[in-house]
Amino acid sequence: MWEYTDKVMDLFYNPRNQGTITEKGEGQAITTGEVGSIACGDALRLHLKVDEKTEIILDARFQTFGCASAIASSSALTELLVGKTLDEALSLTNKEIADFLGGLPEEKMHCSVMGQEALEAAIFNYRGIPLDNHEDDEGALICRCFGVTDSRIRRIVL
């Protein structure tokens, strides 16, 4: 049995900001980022509403297919994003997501990486930057889900 923190369990049972964003006002843009697939066993679709002038994230929503920590990580991510500029958001690490949750079991750290990657995808989509699919990563696959490797997690965590 995984040792989940109370915060993880709370956000799993009562996730904040689930769903999609469809409405936007003037001067606002909606962007999405998606990682993972059903084949892998986890996937996250992140929706952001961005103020085009200030690049401030006004709203963040998620849809997640995955385990309890994937759902909690997604919820945490959306809470951390609102109010940040895109540049500030880009510097968000998966460790901050994990910290927000009071920690994740080591085997589950990649669930938080998924959030960080979906964020990157959403912002790159918004800015029209092509997505790099991390194929250069070395090390054993520890989550087949979307090619996150050991070394990448370590890099991101450290």
Binding site: F12, G41, D42, F65, G66, C67, A68
Partner: peptide, 14 residues
């Protein structure tokens, strides 16, 4: 379909 086993288990656990 479309959801993940661990999440189901933990929800039932509640």
């Amino acid at each position: 379909k479309y959801i993940e086993g661990e999440a189901i288990l933990l929800s039932m656990n509640q």
